[in-house]
Amino acid sequence: MGTDSEPKVVAFCCNWCSYAGADAAGTARMKINPHFRIIRTMCSSRIDPELILEAFSKGAWGVLILGCHPGDCHYKNGNYKALRRVALLKRTLAQFGIEPERLRLDWVSANEGGRFAQLVNETIETVQKLGPLNLHQEVT
């Protein structure tokens, strides 16, 4: 994912609401900090903690998971599961010396382009202050 001098945020967006929200932000030509990559998944519950750790280990400074608002998940309750997984993973990350703020879960509906832009901008700003993770540097 390029050099480690610039922030990198992986934004996982569910297909049904938040990806459409990202699209809305693009169509409306909103100003968004460019240091992020979107990965589209069917549901926020598809984002297994394994994938989040993988993103961090491959150089992401932050991970943003966006799903449908509570009650709106296309698969009924996938977002509730995502919420609990992220809450437990944040505690675990802290024990690994990874600031929990680097992981954020939030909800964006299909018409909330502005909200999408704001969440991405905020997350990039947060990780910019924290700096790169520098995992797996050669250890002795």
Partner: peptide, 25 residues
């Protein structure tokens, strides 16, 4: 098929916590 046992176990336990009343939690 699993790369990270810890992350997988964390995932399955977290999804079971309070699943019965998850909408109200």
């Amino acid at each position: 098929e699993v790369k990270d046992l810890g992350a997988k176990a964390l995932s399955s336990i977290a999804s079971l916590i309070g699943i019965e009343e998850e909408e109200e939690m």
